[in-house]
């Protein structure tokens, strides 16, 4: 599956492959041509990906080949044991979590999980958690606190699920409770937006000492589509809505609403999952090194102060 702006690059890459095959098969020296084409591809990639519009980044964040939470977790950890259930209603498969180790250090991973094919997508509910998902996340966070393990959350959701049962079981209450409880966690909390960061559904696991966004992700109060439908009363203004919402990593950092941006491989995270995972791992390790030095009470104060300073008003 290719996005519109990926196509010209893919066409050239196909041509390059053909050229390489031809050179090999017929034993002709095409090295000059191959080199020039490779340079051309690299230049085009750079040009395309350095000038992405906000809407194009939204598209990349939802790319069909984009790595999901468990892909990264299995790549980053040596051992990982997934833990299930909220101990009240059921196991929400849109929200995953478990204990794993990064270079020997045990971490509690929590994240929204999307599915790769139709069956998985249904099972994972498209990464839209129900209240039991948020309560499962909180249970695991409390467990991490009990055993003194840092928490890493991987955020990737088009929103908390807007369903009948979700309302019956208190979707609003579940998210609200997580926000409040996460501020008081005594262990370090690192949050990384790896895909979509839609509104309260994302924030419900995103109160951290460090909040990062991967380069081609979005994080805002509403999706561009829903924003278009409400403010423009039509679904056709998603590009304008994406621009207006200033929802990219660059925007969010500029506005002081996140702590940092994690660079993606050229062409996006899906082009080199291993490289992406390794960058994420390094970021986590560096953040932990910094956060370990701070006493728990002070870390909590700093976490609270950081979020309390967000907002623009006149008086």
């Amino acid at each position: 599956m290719l996005l519109e702006f990926e196509k010209p690059i893919a066409d050239l890459e196909l041509k390059l492959q053909e050229m390489k095959d031809l050179a090999k098969g017929k034993n002709i020296d095409l090295s000059n041509e191959i080199q020039s084409l490779e340079e051309k591809i690299h230049a085009l990639k750079k040009e395309t990906f350095q000038n992405l519009t906000r809407w194009q980044r939204v598209q990349l964040s939802r790319h069909a080949d984009r790595p999901y939470a468990l892909d990264y977790i299995y790549e980053i950890t040596n051992d990982f044991i997934e833990l299930h259930g909220d101990r009240t209603v059921k196991d929400d498969k849109a929200m995953i979590g478990g204990l794993g180790d990064i270079d020997g250090r045990t971490v509690m991973f929590i994240g929204q999980q999307k599915g790769r094919n139709t069956k998985q997508r249904q099972e994972r509910n498209f990464g839209m958690a129900n209240p039991e998902g948020y309560r499962k996340a909180l249970r695991l966070m409390k467990m991490a606190e009990k055993f003194g393990k840092p928490i890493v959350t991987l955020i990737d959701t088009p929103g908390a699920f807007p369903g009948l049962e979700a309302e019956e079981r208190g979707q609003g209450e579940a998210i609200a409770r997580n926000l409040k409880e996460m501020f008081m966690l005594k262990v370090p909390v690192i949050c990384i937006i790896i895909g979509e960061g839609a509104s309260g559904g994302a924030l419900g696991i995103a109160i951290g000492d460090k909040v990062y966004m991967l380069e081609n992700t979005w994080y805002s109060v509403i999706s561009p589509e829903s924003c278009s439908s409400i403010l423009w009363r039509s679904w056709d203004y998603k590009e304008q809505a994406a621009e207006a919402l200033k929802l990219t990593a660059i925007d969010m950092q500029k506005n002081g609403l996140i702590d940092g941006i994690i660079e993606e491989p050229l062409g996006g995270a899906h082009k080199d999952m291993k490289k992406m995972a390794s960058t994420i791992k390094q970021t986590i390790l560096e953040a932990l090194k910094e956060l370990d030095k701070i006493k728990p009470e002070k870390r909590i104060d700093q976490r609270i102060d950081k979020f309390c300073s967000m907002g623009v008003f006149e008086e």
């Binding site: 409040k180 008081m184 309260g200 924030l203 207006a244 929802l247 609270i304 309390c308 967000m310 623009v312």
Partner: peptide, 26 residues
């Protein structure tokens, strides 16, 4: 709900108010 025209800033008000309520609780 949240005020769309303040996008990310509006989202973070959920966090801010919850942080203060955590302190009130404590």
């Amino acid at each position: 709900g949240a005020r769309m025209m303040e996008a990310g800033f509006s989202l973070m008000q959920m966090a801010k108010t919850s942080a203060k309520l955590a302190l009130l609780d404590k």
